[in-house]
Structures are given as C-alpha cells and as structure tokens.
Design a protein around this nucleic acid. Structure first.
Length: 199
DNA sequence: CGAGTTTGACCAGCGC
DNA sequence: GCGCTGGTCAAACTCG
C-alpha cells in the first residue's frame, strides 16, 4: 500500500488559516481532540459547538469504560518515560482525535511506514502503529477503530514533522466526483496543519 | 530488488 | 515479585 501522490489532477491545494471550510460539514471529528504538550500538561480541546458527549468520547478513546475519568491522564502518562536506547525521549506534541470514516488510515499527506499491529484491551479491533518514513523524522501515529463504534477511527499523532509534506493531498473542485472519505482526509490534513506548528 | 507489511517475540511500565 | 498490557523490534514475507 502506498499513498497516492495526486489522486486528482484537477486539484486545488487549500490552505485556510481560519479553518472554516464548508466541507467541514462532512468531517466528523466527534468534536474531540486531545492536545498533549511536551511538559506533560494535558488539555482537552473541543471543537466549537461540541456536544456534552465529548467527554464520553474521551473515555472511549482510551478504551476506558469504567468511568475512571482519567482518560487524559492515562494518555499522557504512558509515554513520558519510554526510553529504548537510553536516550531521554520526549513525548513531544501529541494529538489524538476521533473521526468517522470508512477507511482506516487517513491520507494526511505524509508518508507513513507501518511498524506494528496489536490487539488492545476493550477493543476487538487491532491498533496499528506507524512511523513517518521520512529520514530523521520521528513522528509516530497510532490508528485504531473505536471499540464501541467501529464507524469511528481514532488517530493519535505524536511529535511534529521536521520536514515538509512529501505529497500534498489534493481534491477536485467538484465535490460530487470525490469520495466522502477523501474529503474527510483533506479536512484531516488541514486539521493536522493547524495543530502542528511549522518546524 | 527495494520498499513496505505482517506478525510473533521481546521489553518496560504499571497495578495488585 | 508477578502478571497484564501497550509499544517496539526485526525477520519473513509480499508487492510493484
């Protein structure tokens, strides 16, 4: 499997700083996004007009169903001390969000290399682990289907790319010719660009 | 043949 | 200390 470099020649690359493009109507973030800073401070960022169910979604994100309420903390705690080769690995910028999509892996424009796949607790679906395949880029991504609602895909980005997007995501000017999921992907790309500070 | 995927094994952290 | 769990490694495999 490889990412399409340009699925549609009649493209327009959108860079909307205000992030208020009309096709956001098609993109379901479930109004949820986690933003974990390097210092360990964790913030729950919610899209505007987020319904009260967003907190429930946060529990789902971590496979926590017991109502422990520590979803965010768990998310942060896990990798703050992970060190394989003696180096002090910083958790880096980390963002997790849930999207409704038929496809598992969103094409966010970067090139990812899969390095692991695991069954996780409270989720019948496998979790997939990806690394950015660009040399020297240590950004990681985890992708899993929501254990309670397989229609949703939970994507977690960890780190910030130290390079430019190798292949931009393009889209046609005509919505009707494009699959809805691809619209979601493009929206995702914009979202990633919004949340990931430029190197 | 090189790049990417699969998958079992291994390792470290955490809770009990 | 032990078992469980999540994350990563790496050899084998697949595909273009």
């Amino acid at each position: 499997m490889s990412f399409p470099q340009n699925p549609n020649p009649n493209f327009t690359f959108l860079s909307d700083e205000n992030f208020t493009s009309p096709f956001m109507d098609n993109f379901d973030f479930s109004n949820l996004m986690f933003d974990v800073d390097e210092g360990g401070s964790t913030g729950l960022v919610q899209e505007e007009a987020s319904p009260p169910t967003s907190i429930v979604s946060s529990e789902t994100l971590n496979g926590e169903s017991s109502g422990s309420g520590s979803a965010v903390t768990t998310l942060n705690k896990k990798e703050s001390t992970r060190s394989k080769d003696g180096e002090t690995k910083e958790p880096g910028h980390r963002v997790a969000f849930r999207t409704r999509s038929k496809i598992d892996v969103m094409d966010d424009g970067y090139k990812w290399r899969k390095y692991g796949k695991k069954s996780v607790k409270n989720n019948i679906n496998k979790r997939n682990y990806y690394k950015c395949s660009s040399e020297g880029c240590m950004v990681k991504k985890r992708v899993e289907r929501d254990g309670k609602d397989a229609a949703y895909v939970i994507t977690t980005y960890e780190g910030v790319h130290n390079h430019e997007i190798p292949s931009h995501v393009y889209y046609s000017d005509t919505v009707s010719s494009y699959d809805r999921d691809n619209w979601n992907q493009h929206s995702l790309l914009q979202f990633i660009q919004q949340i990931s500070p430029p190197s």
